[in-house]
Amino acid sequence: MASAQMPLPAAKPPDGATLFKQQCATCHTTNATDPVRQGPSLYKIVGRHAGKADGFKYSAAFAKTDFVWDDARLDAWLTNPQEVIPGAVMAYRQAKPETRAMIIAYLKELN
């Protein structure tokens, strides 16, 4: 049996944009022109008041929020949305800090 094989290249680790596409893009867009999906557009989310995206109807719990999205709030939100906003309907949770950090870094690039 022949065993001469070329070594496979090392797998490239995913970046924030790839992770977003894999884990978030089903429900969210990253621009202001695509139709709203199940969740609001995340274009320019960093620095935006929570619950205030044009064209998106938020849940009653979300509409009552009074904070601005920053790194810490986004990290807490991706970790456990219902802890940040009781009654929130987002089901996604990300347990890995490094994955959350890459997604948040990507969202910051959209500002």
Rank of each mutant, 00 (worst) to 15 (best):
A72Q: 15
P13V: 05
D66W: 10
C24A: 06
K57R: 04
T33F: 11
V36T: 14
K52I: 02
T26G: 14
G47C: 07
A4I: 11
E98K: 03
L42S: 01
Q22F: 05
A10C: 08
M6V: 14
A72N: 14
I85F: 01
D15S: 05
R37F: 11
E98R: 01
K44M: 11
I104V: 12
A63Y: 08
M6Y: 13
L19A: 05
F62D: 09
E109M: 08
P13D: 08
A10D: 12
I45T: 10
L107Y: 07
N31T: 09
P7E: 12
H28T: 07
A101R: 08
Y92A: 15
R100C: 10
A91N: 11
K12S: 05
A91F: 10
G16Q: 07
T30C: 02
A95S: 13
T26Q: 08
L42Q: 03
A88E: 07
K52A: 13
Q23G: 11
Y106Q: 03
P35F: 12
A10Y: 09
Y43E: 14
D34E: 14
A11C: 02
K21A: 09
I85R: 00
P14S: 05
K64F: 06
P7Y: 06
A11R: 09
I85T: 09
A63H: 09
L42Y: 09
A50I: 12
T79F: 07
Q94K: 10
N31I: 07
L19Q: 00
D15G: 12
N31P: 05
A32N: 14
Y106A: 02
S41Y: 07
Q23R: 14
A88K: 00
F62E: 10
A72S: 14
P13L: 10
I103W: 00
G47K: 04
F62S: 09
M90N: 09
G39N: 02
W77G: 04
Q5C: 05
A25G: 04
L107N: 01
V36P: 08
D66N: 15
C24G: 06
L19W: 02
Q23M: 15
I45S: 01
M102I: 04
L42D: 00
E83N: 08
V68S: 09
E98V: 08
A53F: 15
H28I: 02
V46D: 03
S3G: 14
P9F: 10
A25N: 09
T33N: 11
H28P: 06
Y58E: 11
A4R: 10
S59E: 08
G87L: 03
N31A: 03
D70H: 03
T18P: 00
Y43W: 13
A17S: 05
Q82Y: 00
L74E: 11
E98S: 13
A91T: 14
C27F: 07
V89T: 15
G47T: 05
A95Y: 03
T79Q: 09
L78H: 03
A63E: 12
